[in-house]
Amino acid sequence: MENRVLICTEDPELYLLLNHILSVEGFPSQLADGDADVESCLQKGGLLAVIFDGVAWHGDIVALCSLSKQAGLAVGALIAGDMRTMHLQMIKAGLDDGIMRPLDPERLLAFLRHARRASGDPSAFGEVPPSASPTHISVSSELQHVTISGRRLALTSIEGRILETLVRHRNRTCSRDDLLTAVWREPHDVGARTVDVHIARLRKALSACHDVRIKTVYGEGYALVSTRKGEELCVAARR
């Protein structure tokens, strides 16, 4: 089972926001909205990390931090400036990172990337040792097959058009508007959320290949980049 991030909050709006941020970056999440729910999820396993909503949680968050750390998980919490005493108690109970609100998404993602590296899965973060040959990408003429360093992947037509657009903008940020205009015949009828959904699906398809990843540039868009340090992508013509 793919390791999930357990989001512990009683605020549905916060959960939806965090779930969106994490899903776009390839982190599947799960909601827990009470102490018993958290304990049940910890017992079932399959988790990478636990994120507590320290501002609005009404249960025993200190005890839950301790249980999460005993389960071998990375433990983070969203906190406010007036939570000094509680923050110290959570640190003593095993809290790894207190993330101040208002939330900086990149800070949260950095915490989870570190957790994934610590879990022994470095491939998603550009830490795959470089090989002797550069990363080559070729896209089929029907836009539904892509070959990356010899590995062939099947895509939907929309995923193929998105990937082709990212390939053409390789190593540079491609805005949502760029993708809407390039991929959809009637871009004004398609919302930005639709773009994010297809990006998430494309990320999942590309997860089989460790040579490239789709990077989110917050406030700007997406970029297709090589996971090999210092290497830019080499793109072949359509086949």
Score class of each variant (00 low, 15 high):
M1Q: 09
M1S: 13
R4I: 03
I7F: 07
C8R: 00
T9G: 02
T9N: 05
D11P: 01
P12N: 06
E13D: 15
L16W: 14
L17D: 08
L18D: 05
N19D: 15
H20Q: 12
L22W: 00
E25Y: 04
S29K: 03
Q30E: 14
L31E: 10
G34N: 14
G34L: 05
D35C: 08
V38D: 05
V38A: 06
V38G: 06
L42I: 08
K44A: 13
G46D: 08
L48V: 03
L48I: 06
A49C: 09
I51N: 02
I51S: 04
I51F: 05
D53A: 06
V55K: 14
A56L: 15
W57C: 06
H58P: 12
G59W: 04
D60Q: 09
G72Q: 09
G72C: 09
A74G: 10
G76I: 04
G76T: 10
L78A: 07
A80P: 03
D82R: 09
M83G: 05
M86T: 12
I91G: 05
I91F: 12
K92N: 11
K92Y: 08
A93Y: 04
A93K: 06
G98T: 03
L103C: 04
D104C: 08
P105W: 01
E106R: 07
A110H: 11
A110N: 11
F111A: 08
H114E: 15
A115R: 03
R116H: 05
G120Y: 05
D121T: 10
F125E: 13
G126V: 00
S133C: 14
H136G: 07
S138N: 13
S141D: 13
Q144N: 10
V146Q: 00
S149D: 07
G150P: 02
R151H: 13
R152F: 02
L153W: 01
T156G: 12
T156P: 02
S157C: 10
I158W: 02
I158Q: 07
E159Q: 15
R161T: 08
T165K: 08
R168C: 12
R168I: 08
D178I: 01
V183I: 05
R185G: 12
R185F: 12
E186H: 15
E186W: 09
A192E: 15
R193Y: 11
V195W: 06
D196R: 07
V197E: 11
A200E: 09
L202T: 04
A205L: 11
L206T: 03
L206D: 03
S207C: 09
A208H: 12
C209N: 13
V212F: 04
R213C: 11
T216S: 07
V217P: 02
Y218K: 08
G219M: 00
E220I: 00
Y222S: 00
L224M: 03
G230C: 00
G230H: 02
E231Q: 13
L233M: 01
A236I: 08
A237I: 02
A237Y: 05
R238A: 12
R239G: 11
R239Q: 12
